[in-house]
Simulated scan of single mutants.
Amino acid sequence: MHDLKQDAGIQRVNSSVRHRDVEYPEDGFATLWAMQERHFWYRGRHRFLLHALDRYRLADVGTLSAVDLGGGVGGWVRYLADRRPGQYQPLALADSSRTALRMAGPMLPAGVERYQIDLMNLGWRDHWDVAFLLDVIEHLPDDREALRQARAALKPGGLLFVTTPALQQFWSYNDELAHHLRRYSRADFARLGEQAGLQLLDARYFMFLLSPLYWLARQGKGIEGMTEDEKMALMHKTHQVPPAPLNLPLTAIFAAETPLGHWLRFPWGTSVLGVFRR
């Protein structure tokens, strides 16, 4: 049994919360924990996202409230708190998995709130200035409802930042391993925003410079006929921090997309960022 002290401080907005393993298996959080601070992809995504957040934050608005919805073990919340201290208060991590929230507790800065939530029934109304859905909605059968719930949770004029895997042309065995249901285009974000009652302020692809390497690395592989144990073994093998001689140059290449990718629109990328306003 887990230590009950680990549950201290985890709040619920409503009582009807349940984690759906079919959308994101809880045994994947240990892998995520190991990758979120050092892996070149997370470093690059966080850097790209922070630049977008700074662009849309008004200089004179003071402190803003912010929540990371489906934020797993808290890598983005920790990154944001460390690099923009005091700008986002309260700052919260929200996830359906109590396991993820427990794991996040020791690495989150003091004062960060933790909520166990159901993305299909958040229960917040006009509550947050900023919300994030980072590589979450591609796991959900009803992505439109997730955006509607996020919209309701935002204050009028609030901002929602969404990242997802991009473009069906990049679909591979890895998407199946990661329980992705779809990949998204900029046009998909425009459609989703309209359906959810959100104004799309910006949509742009990223991880453009490394996209040829990404595509090549995922060719010629499949998981048809694999057992669940074999799939999990492959997941652990492919989802880990690369050796330093590889991770460091990949980090540098991905880092070059910020601010480059905000000055011009990459024609494609393996991920896409959307900025929405309520």
Rank of each mutant, 00 (worst) to 15 (best):
E176P: 07
R18F: 07
R57H: 05
D129E: 03
G75V: 09
P165C: 10
F189S: 06
G44P: 02
L200I: 12
V73E: 03
R102Y: 06
L159Y: 04
Y184V: 07
I117M: 02
W124H: 06
G157L: 14
A166D: 13
L49Y: 00
Q36N: 06
L147G: 03
F254M: 06
M207K: 09
V272W: 13
M120L: 13
E113A: 15
E257V: 01
F48K: 03
Q219G: 11
G70M: 02
Y42S: 04
D60I: 03
G123K: 01
L91W: 04
R47A: 02
A104Y: 14
V275E: 08
P212S: 03
W215L: 12
Q116M: 11
L246Y: 07
P242M: 12
Q169R: 15
A152T: 13
G75T: 11
L248E: 10
M120N: 02
Q149K: 02
G105P: 12
P141I: 13
D27C: 13
R102F: 08
T63G: 07
L58I: 08
I223Q: 00
D54Q: 13
R151L: 08
E113C: 14
F161E: 07
W128A: 08
L167S: 15
G86Q: 11
I117P: 01
V112H: 11
Q116E: 14
D188C: 05
T63S: 09
E37R: 11
A187F: 10
F48T: 03
G86T: 14
R114A: 08
P245H: 03
Y56W: 15
K237M: 09
E138H: 11
F132E: 01
L58T: 07
G123C: 05
D202I: 13
Y42Q: 13
G86R: 06
A244Y: 08
N14P: 01
L133S: 04
P85I: 06
L159E: 13
S96M: 09
L216C: 10
W128F: 08
R12T: 14
F208W: 10
M35P: 02
G72C: 08
R182N: 04
L167D: 15
R83H: 01
